[in-house]
Each structure stands twice: as structure tokens, then as C-alpha cells.
Design a binder for these strands. Structure first.
Lengths: 211, 211
DNA sequence: TTGTACATGGTAATCATTATCAGGTCAATA
DNA sequence: TATTGACCTGATAATGATTACCATGTACAA
């Protein structure tokens, strides 16, 4: 059952790229890097090798917050801190490891095999950005417009003053019923503002989004 | 921008089901429970409400290992322990919270806003199961057979003695080249064993899998 | 009352990951 | 030394979890 590992060129490059720095890349971040050296490599190969290498104990698969798994070449016990904004991950050393041999009465019958400690906060870069522009617009997701949303937004862009939803319905091909739903979505994206109740206007961000 | 929450019937039931016990259900676990009371509820509604309620601070979205997010109605600071086998999650209290005001030199410029501590191991149930049957067959994934795999496995089931891949090729419609690949996959699933090099036979698990 | 903000169910789309498969390479045995 | 099968690869399909979209429904404020 024991599998024998071959050190193929692809595997070598993947390992080398991972060890190059202490970032804790996701599979596809690593894929992008490796692709520069091996343009024909497949994403599946990267996933496969990261899986195999971590199963063999040559690297570690990290279980940190966020949906994507990250990988670490450092096998020694250490903990991580990650940025809730940009999801960057750094190593962190705890000075006293004195913690948590949890009292047996508290173990709930579990056989504990380990403990993961993870700090979170803002990395230096994101801290600065936030200072500059206030907390407000965390322009995270690209927020693509659907056709209907774009139509509504264009109608608002063509108007010089705030519109009610009837005005919008008139200027577009959409049913009055559908307007509210679209406007709400646009408001959530920050592309539309409501200066008065039931009147809407396009925001600068909304204008940008049209281009 | 402030959103106002309405306590709809669906939302009420979702909250009630979540608060019923201290399990930390995933969205679809909760969906299954809620469906018993509201058979017409949509999975999307459950996701939407869990998202809204946690954004409003009424419940907490947990960032624990595993790909699915879990939800917790307890807002007080506490930590979790989870089973690496069945992914059950329980609360755990740390007696001394003395740890980790990390030394400023170690913070790498981060503005730390919190820390997550997570134990892992085997829950009582899985501990027992493992004792009974040894560590070996962690029959996790159902390991469905592809058509080709099933064909190979059937061929092996019909033979009384270990086969080489040429024998398998003869007994199936498959090209000799394809056999190795299929056999390897089957071995990984534990359905095929190799008593001698280059000879294969079906395992009891493999026979079970055929039915 | 009426319009609209907030909701919902159904479903499509997205994202990350895993599985499948045909074909390639290399090391070990016949 | 030729062969054979273990291990790999790139391409791509499939899966699982989550999110987005949309038509429609409901209830609160003007």
C-alpha cells in the first residue's frame, strides 16, 4: 500500500516555488507562480501534488479561515495570523506555549490530538488603506452587473435628478414590479443612493461601474 | 443603508431550530431540520437567513476546519473542539484565558482583533468505533464505481485466482493500456489487492461494492 | 390605501476541489 | 535487456458548498 514518490520536474518546481518565501499560498496562487516556469502545467497537477506532498508529510495543508486551503512548507509547530481583509497569512510565534492541557472534565470525552491557534486582524497594508479612506467602501468583490441592473443604472445615469421607480420603468423596458428588486441590489453594491425615500440616483461608483 | 430585519416565520423557525441544542449545524443540516416544520422552505432561504442573522450579530458564523461553515447561537466568547472523523463540533471552555497578548515585536505590524482556538481529535463515538475495528478502513467517502471500474471489478470477481492485467483485458472490453489505471484506482479504494506483484484479486470490500 | 423595502422559493451560476481518463515515463523483474 | 506495471501528467468532467438572480409575495410607513 505504501506509495513511492517520484520527484518529477513538476513536483520539484512546485516545492521550490512554495519554499521560496513564507507566504502561505493557495493552490491556484501557487499555480500562477509555477505556470511562469512550466507554462504547460495543469492546475490539477498542482492540486494533486500539494495533496500528495502533504499526505507524505513533506508540507502542511493549513486549515485556516477562508474557503481556500493554504499550504505551508514549514513543518515545525507554529501558529498563524491572517488578514480579514486581504486574506494574507503570516507566521506568528507564541512566547509561552504554556496553554491548554484542558481539564479532563472539560474534554467532553474527546481524545484530543491537537490544537490550532489562529489570530486575525488587519495586516499592515490593509490597516493603512482603511485609515486613508475610512472603513466604508470595502470594494471586495468585483460586483458585475446583470443586464437588468445595467439597464436600470443607465437609465439613472441619463437622468439629471433623482428618479422614482416609475420614472425608471418608463425609461427602461422593465416591468414596474421588477424595478424595486433591481434597485435594491444596486444599492447593496453601492452603485445607487437614495437621497430621499423612494427617489434614487446613481453614485460615482455606479458611473464607474458602467464603463 | 441600515437594513431593518423582519421576523418572518421562516426566520423564526430557523433561529428556533438552531437554538434547540448546542450542535453547531451546517446550513444544510439545519435545512433538513427546518424542512420538517416548513416543508416548502428553500435551501437558499436558510443560507440567506443564516447570513443575515450573523451579519446582524444575532448568531455567529464559525470558521472551523472543514469546508462547510457552521453556525452557533451562543454569542459569548468560547472555543470549540471538533472530531476529525465525523466533524462533530462541541463547545469547550478554557480555564485560564491567560494566553497570547502577543509581544508587539511578534505582531508583524498586524492590528490584531481576535484569536481563535480550536482543538481537534476524536469524539467519544468515533473513538469507540476506531477501537473496535482498528484504524484501517476509514470508510469515509462512498467511493462510487465508474463503469470501467465496475467492469474490471466484475471480471476479477468472476475469476477464482489472481489475474494479471492481460487476463483482465481479455475478460473485459477494455484496452490493455487502460487496465493499469483502473486497477490502481480500485486499489486505492481498497476494492482490489495485489497478493503478488502484477497479480490482482478482488477484496471482500470490493465484492460488497459490486452490490 | 399604496408604494416600496424586505422576503421568499426556485434555480442558475460560481468557486474550489476532486475524480476520471488516456496517454507518458521510469525502474524493477522475468 | 525488454517488458510491464507503478506512478505521473494535462485536460476536462463532476461534485459540493455557497452565492446570485429573479419573479413574486407580504407588511410597514407615508
Amino acid at each position: 500500500m505504501e506509495q513511492k514518490l517520484r520527484m518529477t520536474h513538476q513536483r520539484e518546481i512546485i516545492l521550490a516555488e512554495l519554499k521560496k518565501n513564507t507566504s502561505h499560498p493557495t493552490a491556484d496562487e501557487l499555480y500562477e507562480k509555477v505556470k511562469k516556469k512550466l507554462p504547460r502545467i495543469s492546475l490539477a497537477t498542482v492540486y494533486r501534488n500539494l495533496e500528495i506532498l502533504s499526505a507524505a508529510g513533506m508540507i502542511r495543508k493549513l486549515e485556516i479561515s477562508g474557503r481556500q486551503k493554504r499550504f505551508d512548507w514549514e513543518l515545525t509547530e507554529h501558529n498563524h495570523i491572517y488578514c480579514v481583509q486581504c486574506h494574507r497569512v503570516d507566521n506568528i510565534e507564541l512566547e509561552k506555549k504554556n496553554l491548554q492541557p484542558v481539564q479532563s472534565t472539560q474534554r467532553k470525552g474527546y481524545e484530543i490530538s491537537g490544537c490550532r491557534i489562529e489570530f486575525y486582524g488587519l495586516c499592515p497594508k490593509c490597516k493603512n488603506i482603511e485609515k486613508k479612506q475610512g472603513v466604508k467602501k470595502m470594494a471586495c468583490n468585483p460586483t458585475v452587473l446583470s443586464d437588468k441592473q445595467r439597464e436600470v443604472l443607465e437609465a439613472l445615469a441619463n437622468s439629471t435628478e433623482p428618479c422614482g421607480s416609475k420614472d425608471i420603468a418608463g425609461a427602461t423596458s422593465l416591468e414596474p414590479k421588477q424595478i424595486s428588486c433591481q434597485v435594491t441590489a444596486l444599492k447593496k453594491k453601492g452603485y445607487v443612493a437614495s437621497p430621499v425615500r423612494c427617489k434614487y440616483e446613481i453614485t460615482p461608483e455606479g458611473k464607474d461601474a458602467l464603463n
